[in-house]
């Protein structure tokens, strides 16, 4: 995908990480809403049948159960499709879990439009906006299988509610098996550059790297930041990118409103306002199709990022020229 080698789907890496963590953490319990083969919680269910609850097709009850379990000292992970988990159980997350101060993790698989043929009802393009809206929630969108393992472990260590979005397709590799630093609240620099910054998460980090390769061929050096952690946002990384590169492109597989782009735009406005462009799904639903066809049609490709980079660099240059003429 995006001309890069792919690894496992991030949902599969999540399922494997869960088993690994389950061996070390007896308080870990997993709930799923009849999607355990798709979310890969089936692996946990096989190894820890007593700590796994398939609640049936009842997301609201699943999240309520998790609240009760957490209040008695368990560490519940609720898994479903991102669309169903965030949209059907939002109120239960809001009051039953979050307002109550309970430690529950939520994992939404099949995030974004790259699920492909199943179409709009199964696609989640609003989940990051909803999760971000919950006070204090941690929101995580890992790029590949290696990042997912880090993100899941960090989320379980975090003493409060967190939402993790994972995806259906085999994810293009950004990292390899070598150790890299990931911490909640910190962006990861995956490529250095001084001309502009591409901030991305999920699948779009690989697209950003592919775009950076294309730009480099033209002599433009793009910094690429992985915002696997959307919330709390690494404002220092945003400010440094603005100060040091003077222009940003944000790329995400989510609606333009309410996602990583919105968070970064706010951080820019409050720190160092520089030109920014947003590669995201416009104010629309997608449709059925092959994942790569969909990503291309709805503007989520390395080419779209390159085009946005050109636009933002023009604005950066024009801004510099305006400042110079005033001076």
């Amino acid at each position: 995908m995006f001309g890069r080698p792919t690894g496992k789907p991030t949902r599969q890496a999540f399922g494997e990480a869960l088993v690994e963590l389950g061996r070390r953490r007896p308080e870990l319990v997993v709930l799923d809403g009849d999607l355990s083969k798709s979310t890969y919680t089936k692996s946990f269910a096989q190894e820890f049948p007593d700590r796994f609850f398939n609640v049936g097709i009842a997301e609201a009850n699943m999240v309520g159960l998790a609240a009760g379990l957490a209040s008695c000292g368990k560490l519940p992970v609720c898994a479903s499709f991102a669309a169903f988990l965030m949209c059907k159980a939002f109120d239960q997350m809001r009051i039953g879990v979050n307002y109550a101060g309970l430690n529950v993790k939520f994992v939404g698989s099949h995030g974004g439009i790259s699920i492909g043929e199943d179409g709009v009802s199964q696609m989640s393009v609003e989940d990051v906006a909803l999760a971000q809206a919950l006070p204090g929630f941690v929101v995580l969108v890992p790029a590949d299988e290696h990042a997912t393992r880090k993100v899941v472990a960090a989320a379980l260590d975090h003493p409060g509610p967190a939402y993790i979005r994972v995806g259906r397709p085999k994810a293009p590799l950004v990292y390899d098996a070598r150790p890299f630093d990931f911490a909640i609240g910190k962006a990861v620099t995956v490529r250095e550059g001084r001309d502009l910054t591409i901030a991305a998460n999920g699948l779009m980090v690989a697209a950003a790297l592919a775009a950076a390769d294309q730009l480099a061929a033209e002599g433009i050096e793009a910094r690429v930041l992985d915002f696997a952690c959307v919330k709390p946002l690494d404002r220092d990384a945003v400010q440094a990118a603005a100060e040091e590169t003077g222009a940003l492109v944000v790329a995400e597989e989510h609606l333009k409103a309410g996602g990583l782009g919105s968070a970064i735009a706010m951080a820019l406005a409050e720190t160092v306002p520089v030109p920014a462009e947003f590669v995201a799904i416009q104010d629309t639903y997608a449709e059925s199709g092959e994942p790569e066809q969909l990503l291309r049609k709805y503007g989520l490709s390395p080419e779209a990022i390159v085009a946005a980079a050109r636009r933002v660099l023009e604005r950066k240059t024009a801004g510099a020229a305006r400042v110079a003429s005033r001076g």
Binding site: D50, A60, V63, G64, L65, G68, C72, G73, D91, Q92
Partner: peptide, 25 residues
């Protein structure tokens, strides 16, 4: 106070989760 409620319909699930935890432990 054992559970935050007020949005109606949530308490039975939360109580069932507490009951489930009791069984597990």
């Amino acid at each position: 106070i054992e559970a935050s409620t007020g949005s109606l319909g949530q308490g039975l699930s939360i109580a069932a989760g507490m009951a489930l935890a009791g069984k597990l432990d």
